[in-house]
Simulated assay, not measured.
Amino acid sequence: MTVREKAYRFRLCPNKEQRILINKSVGCARYVYNHFLGKAKENEYLTYTKYSKQLTQLKKELEWLKESDKFALQNALKDLDRGFKNFFKGKYGFPKFKSKRNRKNSYRTNKFTRKSGTTNIEVKDNKIKLPKLGWIKFRKPKKVKGKILNVTVTKSNTDKYFISIAVKEEVEELPKVDKQIGIDLGLKEFAIMSDGEKIANPRVLKKYEKKIARLNRSLARKEKGSNNWCKAKKKLGKVYEKVANIRLDFLHKVSTKLIEENQFIAVETLKVKNMLKNSKLAKSISDVSWSKFIELLTYKAKWYGRNLVKIDTFFASSQLCNNCGYKNEKVKDLSVRKWECPKCKEVHGRDINASLNILNEGLKIKASTT
Rank of each mutant, 00 (worst) to 15 (best):
I22Q: 04
I22E: 03
N23K: 11
K24W: 05
K24C: 02
S25W: 04
V26Q: 01
V26A: 05
G27N: 11
C28Y: 00
C28N: 10
A29P: 00
A29E: 00
R30M: 05
Y31K: 08
Y33Q: 07
H35Q: 08
G38I: 06
G38Q: 11
G38F: 04
K39M: 13
K39P: 01
A40K: 05
K41T: 09
K41R: 13
N43K: 15
N43R: 14
E44A: 10
E44W: 14
T47R: 12
T49H: 15
T49A: 15
T49Q: 15
T49F: 15
T49W: 15
T49K: 15
K50V: 12
K50L: 15
K50R: 13
Y51I: 01
Y51M: 09
K53Y: 12
L55I: 07
T56F: 08
T56L: 13
T56K: 13
L58H: 02
K60Y: 09
E61H: 05
E61S: 11
L62S: 01
W64F: 15
W64T: 08
L65Q: 00
K66H: 07
K66G: 06
K66L: 13
E67K: 10
E67V: 01
E67I: 05
E67N: 12
S68V: 10
S68M: 07
D69Y: 04
D69T: 08
K70N: 10
F71E: 05
A72C: 06
A72M: 06
L73S: 02
Q74N: 12
Q74A: 05
Q74T: 03
Q74G: 07
Q74H: 14
N75L: 09
N75A: 05
L77P: 02
